[in-house]
Design a protein around this nucleic acid. Structure first.
Lengths: 193, 193
DNA sequence: AAAATTAAACTAAAAATTTAGTCTAATTAT
DNA sequence: ATAATTAGACTAAATTTTTAGTTTAATTTT
C-alpha cells in the first residue's frame, strides 16, 4: 500500500470534521492531501464510502486506547476513567468535531456504532458498584446524573471555540488540569458520601 | 405583506437546523413552504442571507423571553435561571440544533452574536454575588464550574437523539422534571455551603 | 508485471440564482 | 367615478455554477 491512502484518510478526517459531510469537498481534499482526485476514487468508491472509511478508521485508532482502571476504590476508578475521557477528548479534537457533525445531522453510520453507549454503560456500571459497596449515595435517577457528568466533561470540548475565552490567557494544558480538578470535585460531591 | 416570507423563515429554520447550511436545499424549502422558489430570492438575496435572517429571527424571538429571577436568595435565583434555561432548551429544539450546526462549522454570523456570552455572564455574576453574601463556597476556577454546569444542562438537549434511550419509556415532560431536580441537586452540592 | 499514482479534460446531475413577466390591491390623476 | 399608475407578492422557466464522479493515457514505484 502506498502512502496515498493514509494521507487521503487523514486529510478527509480534517475536512469532514470541519465542514461536515455536505460541506466537505472532494476536490479540496485531493488538493490538500497533495494527491490527484482520481486517486481518491481509486481507493474509495464514493464520497459516502470515504466518509465511512474515515469514521471507521477514527474509531479503530480511538477505541484501541482502551480504559482499564487500576484503582482500589470505585471513587478512584471513576476519577481515572473521567480523566482518561478528558485526555482523550483533548488529544482527539477531530473525533469530537466529527461526532458532533454526525449527531447534528443524523448520518446512518452513526446509529450503527454501538460504541456510543460504551462510555455511558461503563460509568453507570461503576456507579452501581459504588452503591453496592456503600461508597456512593443512592440517587433517584442515576442515568440523569451520569448524563450530566458526561455533558459537563464533553461540552467544553464540543463548544471549545465559543467557550475557550472564558478561561483567559492560559495554555490549553493548564485548562485541562483545571478541568480534571473540577470534574474530580464534582464527582466527589455529587455521588459519593 | 403576504404570508410567504414568514412561512419561508419557518420552513428554512426547520431545514437548516436538520440538515445544516450545506445540507439544506432551497428547492426543498420552497416545496415544503408551498411557495415558488423565486419567492425566496424575492425576499432574500441569497441562501446565505436567508440563513442569516433565520438566525436573527430566531434570536429575536428567543431572547425576547428574558430572564428576571424573583427569588430572595442567590440559591433560589440561580435555580430559577437554570430551570428557565432547561425549559427554554426543551421548547426550542430548533434553537439547539441550529446553534450546534453553526458552532460545529463556524459560520461567521455566529462570532457576531454577543448573546452567546449572555448566559454565561449572568450565571457567573450570580455566583460571585453568592460568594459576597456568603451563600456560596469559594472555588479556584468558578468559570470552569459554570461551564460544567451549563454543559450538564445543554448536553442532554444537544445530543438528545443519542441520549434519550437511557431514560427509558417515560414522557419527555417527565424527563424535564427529572433534569430540573438533578440540576437543583448539582447546584446545591457544588457551589453552595 | 502489477499496483499505485498523476494529469487534465470531461460528463451529468444537482443546486443556486436570474429573468421576464403576471396578478392584485391600493393609490393617484383626470 | 374611472382610468392610469404603482408597488408588492408571486410564478414558470431558463441560466449559471458547483460538484461528484469518470475517462484515458501516461508515468512511477514496488
Amino acid at each position: 500500500m502506498g502512502q496515498g491512502k493514509e494521507k487521503i484518510l487523514q486529510t478527509a478526517l480534517q475536512e469532514f470534521s470541519e465542514k461536515g459531510y455536505d460541506g466537505a469537498r472532494i476536490d479540496y481534499i485531493s488538493k490538500m492531501a497533495g494527491v490527484n482526485k482520481a486517486l481518491i476514487y481509486y481507493h474509495f468508491k464514493s464520497k459516502e464510502e470515504l466518509f465511512t472509511a474515515v469514521i471507521n478508521d477514527l474509531f479503530e485508532k480511538a477505541v484501541s486506547v482502551s480504559i482499564e482502571p487500576t484503582g482500589t476504590s470505585v471513587r478512584e476508578n471513576l476519577i481515572q476513567v473521567m480523566e482518561h475521557f478528558i485526555d482523550f477528548l483533548h488529544s482527539n479534537p477531530y473525533f469530537v468535531k466529527i461526532m458532533d457533525q454526525s449527531v447534528a445531522q443524523d448520518r446512518d453510520i452513526f446509529q450503527q456504532l454501538h460504541r456510543q453507549n460504551f462510555f455511558f454503560e461503563m460509568v453507570m456500571g461503576m456507579y452501581q458498584l459504588g452503591v453496592q459497596t456503600g461508597e456512593c449515595r443512592k440517587v433517584d435517577h442515576p442515568e440523569d446524573f451520569v448524563v450530566s457528568l458526561l455533558g459537563a466533561v464533553y461540552f467544553y470540548f464540543s463548544h471549545h471555540k465559543a467557550i475557550r475565552k472564558f478561561y483567559g490567557n492560559i495554555s490549553e494544558e493548564e485548562v485541562i488540569v483545571i478541568r480534571k480538578k473540577t470534574m474530580k470535585d464534582m464527582i466527589s460531591r455529587l455521588i459519593f458520601l
